[in-house]
Write a protein that binds this DNA or RNA. Structure first.
Lengths: 173, 173, 173, 173
DNA sequence: GATGAATGAGTTTTCATTCAT
DNA sequence: TATGAATGAAAACTCATTCAT
C-alpha cells in the first residue's frame, strides 16, 4: 500500500461519508487525494472496487470495536460495553461511521451478518443473567444501539453523557 | 395536479426508494411514469425539485401517521401507539418508508424538526405517569422506534409479532 | 392585431435586443409578454416567424427614419440629416436599434438593400454640391453613420453633442 | 496545449464566426474538431470557457495588428496605418474578424478598453499635426475604421482599393 | 383567441474508465 | 508507480413546437 494509495482510500472514505457513494465522482476523489484519476483505477480497478476497499476497512474497524465485547466474560460488562459503544467513538471518527450507516441503506447487499457475533455475545449474557427472553433482549439492545448511534451521528443528541447514564441506569449497569 | 404529474411523483417515489436518489436518473423516472423526460422538468423544474415534492409527500404521510398519537390523551396509549408504529405500517408502504429513512442520511438538511411533536407528546405522557426523567424516557423511545423501524424496513426482523409483544411488555403496556 | 399579439412582439423585440435572437427562448418571450407559449405560435407560426415580424417592424421604422432625408431637396440638408441620424434617435429606442445592428451580424441574409435609397439620395446630394467623387463620398458617409451609430448604441460615446458638432463642422454643415 | 486542444479552438473559432456563438453547439464543434465532446469540457470547462479562449485569441491577434501603429512615431503614418487596417487584413482571416465584430454585440461585457491604446496613439498623432481637436479627430477615425471594417467583412464593399484611396486622399495621407 | 399539458430532439455537462507515455 | 489526454455513454436540462380543450 503506497502513500498515494492510502491517500485515495482516505479521500474516498471522507467523500463517500460526506456526500454519499453515488454523489461522489472519482474525479473528486482524485482531486482531494491529490493524485491523477487514472491512479484510482490502477489501484482499485473500478469505483466499486474502491467502495469495497472502503467497506472492508469498515469491517476491520467494526471488528476492532466489538472485539473486546465478544471476548468479555462478565455478562453485565458485555451489555454495558455494547450500549456504551456509540458514546465512546471519538468525534473525529463520526465521518467514517456515518458512511457505514449510510451504506447500509445505499447498498443493496451490505453485509448484514456483521452483527451476528455481537448478537451471540449479548444473548449469552442475558442467558447468564437469567433473563426470560435472552434472544429478544439481545435484539432490542442492538436496535437501541442502532437508534442511538444514528441519532448521535446525525448530531441530534445534545447531551450525550446524560443519555448514556440514563440508558445504563435503565439496564442497571 | 394532472394524471401524468401524479404518475411522475409515484414513479420517483418508487425508484428513489428502490435505488436511492442519486442512483436514479430522470430518464428512468420518465420511462417508468410513461412520460417524456421534459415533462418532469416542466412540472418540478429540476431533479431536486422532484425530490422535494417526494419529501413533502413523505411529510404529509408522516403527519398522518402520528396524528392520532399526538391527539391521544391517555399517556399509556401515547407510548404504546408510538412503539407500535413500525409494526402497523402495511408492507406495501415499506418502499416509501425506506426512502424516508434513506433520505435522512442522503440529504444534507433533511428536516429534523419533524419528530418534535411526538417528542412533546411522549415526554408529556411520561410526565403524567410520573417517570423520573420524562424527557430522556421520551428520547429513548424515539431511538428505539428508529432502531426497530430501521431493522424492519431492512428486513432484518424475522418475527415482528414477537418483537412487538416483547417491547410492549417491557414497557408494561 | 390583438393586445396580446402586440405584447408578444414588444417582448420579443426587447429580449432579442438584449440577449440576441438565438439566446432568447420562446418561453422567455411568453413569460415576459404574460401569455401562454402556445399563443406565440398561433400568431407567428414559428420562432423565425416572430423574428420576421420583428425585422419587418424594424424595416418600417427604418423607412420612417430616412423618409424625410430621401424627400429632402436641399443637398446640404440631406447630408446633414443623415449624419445627425444617430444623435436624434431617442434613448428609449436604443434597445430596438441595437437589435437591428445585432441582427445584421446574426442573420445570414439580413436585407442589405435597405440602405440603397439613402445611398442614392446622398450621392445625388454630393453630385449637386459638385464633389469630385459623389458615390464614394456617399459611401463614406454611410460608413461613418454606421460606425458612429454602433458606438452610440454600445454606449461608448461619452459626449454625443460634442461629437455631433464636430462631425457637422467637418462637413461644413 | 495539445494538438486536439488546438483543434477544438480552431473549430470553435470557425464555427462561432460562421454561425454565431449561441447557434453553434458543442457537439458540432467536437465533430468538426474530430474529438469527443467531453474533451471540450476537459480543456475549457464549459462552452463559455471555450468562448473566452476564442476571445483571448482574438485579443492577441488584435494586439498584433495594431502593435506597429502604436509604436509608429511619424504622426501621418499612425493615421494612415489605422485607416488602412481593414484593407490589409487577408481575406482568409475575414471569418475570424467577423466573429470578433459579432461578439462585440453578442457578449454582455466585451472588453471595450481594447481600443484605448489606438485612441491614445491617434490623438497624439493629431496633436502633433496641430489639429484643432485631436481627441475628437481620433474618435472619428476609430468610428470610420469600425464602419469601414464592418462593411468590408459583411462583403458590402465592391471596390476596396478605390475606397481605400478615397479615404487616404481625404486625410491627405 | 387563448391556455397549458405534453413531446422529442437537442443541448450542455458529467462520469467512469482506458491507454499511451 | 504515476500521469493526464482522451473517450463514449449517460446525465440533467432546454427548447421549439403541437394539440386537446
Amino acid at each position: 500500500m503506497t502513500v498515494k494509495q492510502e491517500k485515495i482510500l482516505q479521500s474516498a472514505l471522507q467523500l463517500f461519508a460526506l456526500e454519499g457513494y453515488h454523489a461522489t465522482s472519482t474525479s473528486k476523489v482524485a482531486k482531494q487525494a491529490g493524485v491523477s484519476e487514472g491512479l484510482i483505477f490502477k489501484h482499485y480497478t473500478s469505483k466499486e472496487g474502491l467502495l469495497n476497499a472502503v467497506v472492508e476497512e469498515g469491517e476491520k474497524r467494526f471488528k476492532n470495536l466489538y472485539a473486546e465485547i465478544v471476548l468479555e466474560d462478565k455478562p453485565r460488562q458485555v451489555i454495558k460495553k455494547t450500549l456504551e459503544l456509540p458514546f465512546i467513538v471519538p468525534e473525529e471518527e463520526y465521518g467514517f461511521w456515518k458512511l457505514q450507516f449510510k451504506l447500509k441503506w445505499e447498498l443493496k447487499d451490505y453485509n448484514t451478518q456483521k452483527m451476528q457475533p455481537m448478537m451471540f455475545a449479548l444473548s449469552n449474557a442475558f442467558k447468564n443473567l437469567e433473563y426470560d427472553n435472552p434472544e429478544l433482549e439481545a435484539e432490542l439492545v442492538l436496535h437501541i444501539l442502532d437508534g442511538v448511534a444514528s441519532a448521535i451521528l446525525k448530531d441530534m443528541v445534545t447531551d450525550k453523557e446524560e443519555l448514556r447514564n440514563f440508558i445504563l441506569t435503565k439496564y442497571k449497569l
